[in-house]
Design a protein around this nucleic acid. Structure first.
Ligand code: ZN
Ligand code: ZN
Ligand code: ZN
Ligand code: ZN
Lengths: 159, 159
DNA sequence: TGATAGCGGACATACTATAACATATCAAGG
DNA sequence: CCTTGATATGTTATAGTATGTCCGCTATCA
């Protein structure tokens, strides 16, 4: 089970495991993992990339699973709400969660060259930011952390 | 010169100093601090809040300074490009920079109750995230760090 | 059987951002 | 003076992202 998606790996297993983990969690929590929601998750898992809502919608349309924006947004909202996917604010796009179900404060590493996105842990309740925040009396509840740069593969190519 | 805008302070001075600091820097760097750009900066400085491009545009329109989206976006682009303002990705909105001219990797503390935004330092090249990134060979160039929570004033009120 | 709740279909609309082209302004050089 | 190039602004249109609302279906449960 790789963490980043930058390395070569058995991506078929990646998808299968991702879907089945969410399937399990939905069953456990009594959530409805409907066909549209499952398909959207599969699409997000297809590459370790962020997909826009309308990219998703196009695919759904091709497959006869829905043709109007709310269909895609509702599925995405469901996935995000339950921690099965995340929104990348910088890209107005969405990625599958790398460790669905585990509650976490995710951070993202976004390659500006190949657009791959990796998920890292960045609990903002420690570290320098937390100190600054505490210093002015601000209580952090959630945090968006999105780092942009070059992934290991693209540093050599330097395109 | 307060750092956060959460505390009571002489906000008139806040605006004057903000504008004049940018004025100086523009002069020093040969940048044109035109009426529209100045006015947009003033609007951003009015509250320690993020303003949407169309909020800005409405104000500009009222004042006869421009009526079409590109006018606002171009002024905002100028301010952001030269570090006089920042975009808050989570809000699709913009804030004046708290320390214009100094190059920095800003982080933001966004109050979910009163919508005030404070700027903090969070250089992502140290800390835990940098370690994770280094661990997978990812080179961080820029980072969006936007923390959401309650500012000191709103923690009491707890609305 | 009827009430309730959740999901999805469909239409319309709002909000955010940019492309593309035209015009204005000003400074440098012929 | 006139041209030219650079920068900023004006204007129209369009692209891209996200939500509101209403309706019908189905499953569940009293
Ligand atoms: Zn994979
Ligand atoms: Zn890459
Ligand atoms: Zn102030
Ligand atoms: Zn507040």
């Amino acid at each position: 089970m790789e963490t980043t998606g930058f390395e070569r790996h058995d991506h078929g297993a990646c998808i299968r495991e991702g879907v089945s983990a969410v399937d399990d969690r939905c069953r456990a929590q009594g959530l409805q993992f409907t066909p549209v929601r499952r398909r959207v998750l599969e699409l997000l898992l297809e590459g370790h990339r962020a997909l826009g809502a309308y990219d998703i919608l196009d695919r759904l349309r091709e497959e006869g699973l829905g043709s109007q924006p709310p269909v895609a947004y509702r599925a995405l909202d469901f996935l995000v709400k339950h921690g099965f996917a995340h929104k990348i604010e910088r890209l107005n796009a969405f990625v599958a969660c790398a460790c669905p179900g585990e509650s976490h404060m995710p951070a993202f590493l976004i390659c500006r060259n190949c657009d791959k996105v990796a998920e890292a842990e960045a609990d903002m309740r420690d570290g320098r930011l937390a100190e600054s925040a505490a210093g002015v009396g601000f209580r952090i509840e959630r945090a968006v952390v999105e780092a942009e740069g070059l992934c290991p593969n693209c540093q050599g190519a330097a395109a």
